[in-house]
């Protein structure tokens, strides 16, 4: 699974301008390539298709406790 090809340099310029972030000339081009490959890598996450509907970010704190160390082997 890959992310939609949303990051052209024009799209980056518009998105950042909308957030009040000014880019140096030609920077958007490099940023578009880099961020598209990061978003592709993220979207290719093999656990993504099975992500539970009710999984939420704070659930991670409970997972930390659930997975905590058992006593090390003696």
């Amino acid at each position: 699974m890959t992310a939609a090809k949303q990051w052209s340099s024009e799209a980056i310029d518009v998105a950042l301008e909308a957030q009040g972030i000014a880019l140096a000339p030609k920077r958007a081009e490099r940023l578009a390539a880099g961020q598209q490959s990061l978003l592709d890598a993220s979207a290719a996450d093999p656990l993504r298709p099975a992500l539970e509907f009710d999984a939420d970010p704070p659930g991670f704190m409970l997972a930390l406790v659930r997975c905590k160390a058992r006593s090390p082997s003696k």
């Binding site: 970010p57 930390l64 659930r66």
Partner: peptide, 8 residues
């Protein structure tokens, strides 16, 4: 949201 699944 994926983070807990990866930890597990």
């Amino acid at each position: 949201r994926l983070r807990a699944a990866w930890l597990e």
